[in-house]
Design a protein around this nucleic acid. Structure first.
Length: 416
RNA sequence: GGAUCUUUGGCUGAGUUGGUCGAAAGCACCGGUCUUGAAAACCGGCGAGGGUAACACCUCCCUGGGUUCGAAUCCCAGAGGGUCCA
């Protein structure tokens, strides 16, 4: 959630920044107005309540002194009616405000480039040179089937489209990658955590998936429980509603989980292969940080994911997302795109975001900043999406006969 | 599953004939005095959120309802924990 006090204090600046992200300025004006209305309603209610409390205290005095209380009681009863009304108004305003506020995305950082969509993302740098082939490189689904690694049809049989099954090396490679990534991240100071893959509504509100993106999630029937779309949700919400000690920060965490996505808005896109699946493995990085250290940690996380790709000998590039491509909760995001020879293009394999205090405000994660409680900054990034890493390995390490080499760093993990 | 007890601030733990209780006390923690330094001792501070320039003020004693002018204290439901029975 954005800082409503800030919006009130400096409306022009905030609305200018959010307009860059395509937020309607009139919506913001509405939000500001609601915020002010709520304050008025609250003050009205609290004033009445204060009067009520004061009068109630007098009862004790009257009784002790043996005075008649009928006049006092009449006053209190009259006030009570007013309180009920004031409370109702306040509740209503509160609801309206929350509905509006929870749907407003984060404010982009000033150095985020303007733009409409992924076409306008800005490349930072390329790492490693894409391999050249003296034959036409195949796409991963062809290689996966030819090597017997992935069975797409049987995945569909078991569940529905966008599910697949790994066999033999196709299954082992997945496990090797997960272990390799977790170990790699641990060496960079990220503590391994094992978290639930089902979370409640409150957690998803904390990180910003709800209430706006309910359609992207798998929900347990009849319960307020959801399958996680990313480990970012449980990891970030671990400290929901807590006040951390300053010396506990930063909390650098990594976790492997399955991720579940409905992919409602992705009809027709990436229908072949395993680029866009309903269920996939991912190793995630999350950091809870003090505001003044979050920029440095952001760079660390980007470097961690990039170095992981380099260790796997996978050519990739880093791009800064433009305002139009920036996610709901992010103030700034750097995507890592891996080179896919079969598709002759770079495709997203990791996304590292700094949400600043946006999630912290929703999830109420704070730390003792001297005497004060201050909202933390939360950062998240994939390192990496496992399925897409397998895709990248298949396409980059393919040979003319369709066989596939395995990156050297994975050999110990595969007993070769 | 049945019976019964229990649920308080970072922890321990008072507070149940409803009214100066946001809550005693101890520990922990922070600041100070003392000390060459530390410990001990002594003095002071010390829950959270909202609100304010700062006060005032409002809310919070597992959760949600209710009774009442007024509830940590009474009633109902739920959740967690303990003990006994099965």
């Amino acid at each position: 959630m954005i800082d409503l006090k800030l919006l009130q204090k400096d409306f022009d600046t905030i609305s200018k920044k959010l307009t860059r992200k395509g937020v309607d300025a009139t919506l913001l004006a509405q939000l500001k107005e609601k915020f002010e209305e709520l304050k008025v309603a609250k003050t009205a209610f609290e004033t009445l309540q204060a009067a009520q409390n004061a009068m109630s205290k007098e009862f004790g005095v009257y009784k002790r002194e043996g005075k008649d209380i009928s006049e006092l009681k009449a006053r209190v009863d009259a006030n009570k009616v007013k309180i009920a009304q004031a409370l109702e108004i306040q509740r209503h305003k509160q609801e309206e405000l929350e509905k509006l506020a929870m749907a407003i995305p984060n404010i982009p950082d000033d150095d985020v480039p303007d733009g409409e969509d992924e076409e306008d993302n800005v490349e930072i740098k390329k790492v490693l040179t894409p391999p050249t082939f003296d034959f036409t490189p195949k796409e991963h689904w062809e290689l996966a089937e030819q090597n017997g690694w992935i069975d797409f049809e049987r995945g569909v049989k078991l569940a529905t489209s966008r599910f697949s099954v790994g066999f033999g090396m196709g299954a082992k490679l997945e496990r090797a990658l997960i272990n390799f990534m977790l170990d790699f991240n641990a060496k960079r100071g990220f503590e391994e955590v094992s978290v639930p893959e089902i979370v409640n509504r409150r957690a998803l509100e904390g990180t910003g998936q709800l209430p706006k993106f309910e359609d992207d999630l798998y929900k347990m029937e009849g319960q307020e429980l959801y399958l996680i779309p990313t480990a970012e949700v449980p990891l970030t919400n671990l400290y929901q509603d807590e006040i951390l000690k300053a010396d506990e920060l930063p909390k650098k965490m990594t976790a492997h989980t399955s991720c579940f996505r409905e992919e409602a808005g992705a009809a027709g896109r990436d229908t072949r292969g395993m680029i866009r699946q309903h269920q996939f493995h991912k190793v995630e990085l999350v950091t809870i940080a003090k505001p003044d250290e979050s920029d440095a940690i952001f760079d660390e996380m980007v470097a961690c994911a990039s170095d992981l790709l380099t260790a796997l000998e996978l050519p990739h590039r880093l791009v800064t997302l433009c305002t139009g491509d920036l996610g709901f909760s992010a103030a700034k995001t750097v995507d890592l795109e891996v080179w896919l020879p079969g598709q002759n293009t770079y495709r997203e394999i990791s996304s590292v975001s700094n949400t600043r205090d946006f999630q912290a405000r929703r999830a109420k994660i704070r730390f003792k900043d001297g005497k004060k409680n201050t909202l933390v900054h939360t950062l998240n990034g994939s390192s990496l999406a496992v399925g897409r890493t397998m895709v990248a390995i298949m396409e980059n390490f393919q040979k003319e006969d369709g066989s596939i080499d395995i990156p050297k760093v994975l050999h110990p993990y595969l007993g070769i």
